[in-house]
Write a protein that binds this DNA or RNA. Structure first.
Lengths: 342, 342
DNA sequence: TTCAAAATTTACATCGCTGTAAAAATTACT
DNA sequence: AGTAATTTTTACAGCGATGTAAATTTTGAA
């Protein structure tokens, strides 16, 4: 009998008077096992309370059954929803998820890719914030990888995002449909050089031009960083400097919340005087006052596409990077309602 | 040379012309290695790009270096903050975290407890919602476990929460200090039988009685479930039934948001006519309009206490369950400001 | 009944690393 | 210099499961 704490395969085998491999076959539901043998082994398993040791199994198979999800911060309404969706999607496919926070720091993002210790996970889903496409290709070691978001998308790596240009276009179109003529963009974040901002601005401008509206660069409001405080300060300053506008497309829901606060502080009504659309459709948007309309990426779809693509890679697919667009919609709420109720 | 993909310890050993154990010693910074030997091995490690295989290491040591955090849902502002804090605390102590969502289902909660035997993680931090103290003791088999929250706290298991009675008392005291006389509690959730509600109600009542106020059971508002919608419906119904009150202590921030919406829908001003205090001090509370005061559990402290207690258990401590109270404060915002600004 | 083919079961090497105990090299002390 | 004490390095047996190939039993056809 085994002296340690755990019951091993060999303990079960001896107890049932069979070989280890037969027990293993029963555990794995291997088809060529006679019913009576299966029953005998099953009984031994239950009597001894045997639980397979995953670590040992992994050492032999070389698979961990785990994937990593690396995101800037868990404690962010968008990312926590993505994390939720990825965990659910992975679980449905028999995988477990380790969540890694990069804090949006380049160094930590690289650490995720470099994979200091091998064999922790079979693959990685990664939403970068700082690291460039080039750095990713240089550092990536052959561990299956799927990228999320707009920050980096090297041609060689699988990647998923929503069509930001189109989403921005649709949003601005919605504002125009409400009769708005001077629509601002909050905001162009200084540290976000190559990412979402450019695409969203492109869609923003395209919609304006398509409607024959003048796109005034003063209406593109610069924000120092990603905090709501910075957005509120930037917008307040613009208002106080005399900027006039009747609609705002916000870079994310936190900025939308900041915009609501800034407008309220200046006695400007929403949506009467200014209509607002946020981005990400997080819980925040539903709970503000007034509730905020928001671009709604299909987070479940993103997660499922990501996990599926990752599994294909883990199963040996090695084609060039696939770049997919996930669906999105526009969640309509009070801050930029439909025309009928406006 | 190794035919497979990974460079192994033995490959490094041969390359450097030393034994495997010496390489292992260098990797582990074992002190009794001569500097020149260390350098020689280090060079081989770098030349070959060796990464230790965690799975193999685990099989030998029996430690995984990972802990599980089991919570009802990641995508909830309170739990995502806790998750954040636990990940940070664990990482600072050299541990990685697997996050498991139980969806608040008893079945999944039990699965979490049973699962540990499989050697996936070295310990579990678990915030139960449904499972009883008895069930936990029955299923738990000596694997390190630390419980969070108010739902279950078997004597035999380590446990952390804030002093709910005291927190409720302080909150109601604050409302009384603002001159409020009829203070409601939103809400007593039907399915939460033995948990937080009882404690918070006790503190609520204690504060009322200490101030010589009548505690009217009509002011304890029943809510069907934990969704904001249910809370909003319950409060709206109470208002329409003619219930009068000038302050509300809410069970959590989502309820506080719901209360704000219900009051607004009925044209009742906050904080002038009704002052509101939420619970958990999540991001939501800061972003509502008006911003909501909220009971603020010290989430960092909770996470650090939990990880530290778990590590002690993992290191062999086997005393009786320790029950600790984590600090909390009252985050004051517009919905129930300080007297001077009210 | 006999023998080849197919279905079950077995024995054991192997995955990559670490712990142990022993060997070798170095240092310290008469 | 000679021997004991100490430090450094080595050899190799596991950790607990699975994959392979061989051994055994069962089945089917002649």
């Amino acid at each position: 009998m085994n002296t340690g704490k755990g019951v091993r395969l060999i303990d079960v085998a001896r107890h049932a008077g069979v070989s280890m491999k037969t027990v293993s076959n029963v555990v794995h539901n291997y088809q060529h096992v006679t019913p009576q043998m299966r029953e005998r082994v099953q009984e031994a398993i239950e009597q001894l309370g045997y639980k397979p040791n995953l670590t040992a199994r992994r050492l032999v198979t070389g698979k961990t059954g785990m994937i990593a999800l690396a995101i800037p911060e868990i404690n962010h309404p968008y990312f926590s929803t993505i994390a939720d969706a990825v965990v659910v999607a992975a679980e449905a496919r028999g995988l477990r998820v380790i969540i890694e926070q990069t804090d949006g720091k380049a160094e930590r993002e690289l650490a995720v890719l470099r994979d200091r210790e091998a064999g922790l996970v079979d693959g990685v889903i990664f939403q970068p914030a700082k690291v460039s496409s080039l750095e990713i290709t240089e550092v990536q070691q052959g561990t299956p990888l799927v990228l999320l978001g707009e920050a980096a998308m090297p041609l060689s790596v699988d990647h998923i995002m929503i069509d930001n240009v189109e989403a921005a276009r649709v949003s601005v179109e919605h504002l125009i449909g409400l009769g708005r003529k001077r629509i601002a963009f909050l905001g162009a974040v200084v540290e976000d050089k190559a990412g979402a901002t450019v695409r969203r601005l492109a869609g923003y401008q395209a919609a304006l031009e398509a409607a024959g509206l003048f796109s005034d660069s003063d209406l593109v409001i610069q924000v120092q960083d990603f905090t709501p405080g910075a957005a509120m300060a930037a917008l307040s300053q613009a208002i106080e400097a005399g900027l006039k506008f009747d609609g705002i497309l916000c870079r994310d829901d936190r900025f939308a919340v900041a915009a609501l606060q800034a407008l309220r502080a200046h006695g400007i009504t929403v949506p009467e005087e200014v209509a607002i659309i946020g981005w990400d459709n997080t819980e925040l948007a539903a709970y503000t006052n007034p509730a905020a309309s928001s671009v709604a990426p299909d987070k479940t779809a993103i997660a499922e596409m990501a996990v599926d693509m990752l599994i294909e890679r883990m199963n040996g697919f090695s084609g060039v990077g696939r770049h997919r667009l996930a669906p999105f919609s526009l969640a309509i709420r009070e801050s930029a309602p439909t025309l009928s109720s406006s």
